[in-house]
């Protein structure tokens, strides 16, 4: 397997013990002011796989997701304890630049949020600020590759300079995925990416997520248990800030160990 440097600090050279572990979190606690949002969560997320976080509203699954690329840093009152390592490097280490980290851990949000710019500029935004292209031709190539990766190239190739906000909801969300992919992340975080989409657009995005699994480690937060069952290989169930159960998706949905998990997937809590 390949270990990719996440930041420019010298690599300590320790090899990954488990071949497939991409992200490993240990004893993570998150506080918003006095509110204890995440309680002692430890989890290992595997590479080239889709991991789903499920749980009732306010259970902390989105909060935990936002810890993985340090998006919680932008919230003034938040405080985090514990360690989160990506490829065995602590992302909360002082040497890590959170801005650089976020380029390597892409994020797709609940509501499609294309910038009020052209489709091309939306995708080129990340590569441009990170100086990934030497010239216009290279940038064009990156944009095309990302749009193809986002399964939206055929729909927009003739109107790359039309505003991204003019696309339909599903197209906008795939554009946002293409935008996240353009910076060549290693991990893709998705915070309820289909909750604002209709069933057809949802199906397209789910198909895309399945394809993305070949190159990225994908972590998806979802409210829809069917969606978790359809797209993910591993599922984590959060309840009241605790990670209740984590395992193979098939096992969680057919034979959960914890009674709370069973109650949730059968619709008795949540």
């Amino acid at each position: 397997m390949k270990v990719i440097d996440m930041y420019d600090a010298p690599h300590t050279g320790r090899t990954v013990t488990s071949n497939d572990i991409k992200i490993s979190a240990r004893n993570v606690n998150v506080f918003y002011g006095d509110n204890h949002a995440i309680k002692d969560v430890s989890v290992d997320i595997e590479d080239k796989m889709v991991t789903a976080f499920i749980g009732p509203s306010g259970c902390g699954k989105s909060t935990f997701l936002r810890c993985l690329n340090r998006m919680n840093d932008t919230i003034e009152s938040s405080r985090i304890e514990g360690t989160i390592c990506i490829d065995d490097e602590d992302i909360y280490d002082r040497r890590v630049d959170p801005v650089q980290l976020r380029a390597k851990v892409g994020m797709v949000f609940q509501k499609p949020n294309p910038f009020p710019k052209s489709i091309y500029d939306n995708v080129a935004y990340g590569p441009k600020i990170h100086g990934m292209a030497r010239n216009k031709a290279e940038l064009d190539e990156i944009v095309e590759k990302a749009l193809r990766r986002g399964a939206i190239w055929d729909e927009v190739k003739d109107r790359l300079h039309a505003p991204g906000t003019g696309l339909s909801g599903g197209q906008q969300q795939r554009l946002c995925i293409a935008r996240a992919v353009a910076t060549e992340p290693e991990v893709l975080l998705m915070d309820e990416p289909c909750s604002a989409l209709d069933p057809i657009a949802t199906a397209q995005v789910e198909e895309l997520i399945d394809e993305l699994r070949q190159d990225y480690s994908v972590v998806i937060v979802t409210h829809s248990m069917q969606q978790a069952a359809r797209v993910s290989q591993k599922t984590a169930f959060f309840h009241l800030g605790n990670l209740v159960e984590y395992g193979e998706t098939g096992k969680i949905f057919t034979n959960p160990e914890d009674s709370r998990t069973e109650a949730y997937i059968t619709g008795r809590i949540g």
């Binding site: 932008t74 390597k104 600020i129």
Partner: peptide, 10 residues
């Protein structure tokens, strides 16, 4: 929009 931009490492 801010989140989207920060999320891309800006």
């Amino acid at each position: 929009l801010r989140d989207g931009s920060y999320g891309l490492g800006a």
